[in-house]
Simulated assay, not measured.
Amino acid sequence: RGLGHTGGTIDKLEAIKGFSCELTTRQFIDAVNKIGVVIVGQTGNLVPADKKIYALRDVTATVDSIPLIAASIMSKKLAVANKGLVLDVKVGSGAFMKNLEDARELARLMVKIGKQAGRKVTAVLSNMDEPLGEMIGNAVEVIEAIDTLRNHGPEGFTSLIKTLAAEALALGSGLSRNEAEKKVAEVLANGRAYAKFLEMVKFQGGDVSMIEDYSKLPAAKQIDKLKADRDGYISHINCEEIGLAAMMLGAGRETKDSVIDMGVGLKLVKHVGDKIAKGDVLAELYLNPNLDNSRAINRLRQAIVLSDSRIVAQKLILDIVS
Rank of each mutant, 00 (worst) to 15 (best):
L318K: 02
I242D: 03
D213V: 14
V40W: 01
K112D: 05
K51R: 11
M135K: 13
G94D: 08
H236W: 07
N298T: 12
K221N: 13
A185M: 08
H236Q: 12
R57C: 10
G94W: 06
G114L: 03
K216H: 04
G191C: 09
K227P: 02
C239Q: 11
D50Y: 05
L318M: 05
G94Q: 06
I136P: 00
E101M: 10
V312R: 13
S294N: 07
T43V: 04
I66R: 00
L287Q: 13
A79D: 09
S20F: 10
D213I: 14
E212T: 09
I223Y: 12
Q222T: 08
K267A: 13
L132G: 00
V264I: 11
D50K: 03
A61I: 00
N33Q: 13
G279T: 11
L226M: 01
L13M: 12
I237F: 01
M262Q: 15
I69C: 00
K83H: 15
A170D: 00
E134D: 11
A123F: 01
R26E: 15
G273D: 07
K270C: 11
D50T: 13
D50E: 13
I16H: 00
T43P: 08
A139N: 09
K83Y: 13
S126V: 11
A245P: 08
D147F: 13
F28M: 12
V259I: 15
Q222K: 13
L3M: 05
D274G: 05
L244N: 04
V40F: 03
L3P: 01
A49V: 06
E179N: 09
K270V: 10
D88A: 11
I10Q: 12
T24G: 06
K182C: 06
L68E: 00
G243M: 03
R57D: 08
L169Y: 14
L316C: 02
T9L: 10
R119W: 03
D257N: 12
R150N: 14
I317G: 01
L164C: 04
S322I: 02
D58W: 02
G191Q: 12
D147N: 14
M248D: 14
E134S: 15
M210V: 05
L282W: 02
S307K: 05
N33P: 05
A103G: 14
A283T: 08
G206I: 08
L318H: 00
A103F: 09
V184I: 15
K278M: 08
M135E: 13
L85I: 15
L285G: 06
E254R: 12
G41W: 04
I317C: 06
A296K: 03
A81I: 07
L249R: 03
L287M: 11
L56E: 14
L46T: 12
D30P: 04
A303M: 05
G2R: 09
D30L: 10
R253W: 00
R150T: 06
A165P: 00
V124R: 02
L175R: 11
G118K: 05
K216R: 05
K183C: 11
I320T: 08
R108I: 03
I35N: 07
V201E: 10
K12F: 11
N238S: 06
L244E: 05
A245R: 07
L300Q: 01
E179W: 06
G243F: 04
M247K: 12
N33V: 08
A313L: 05
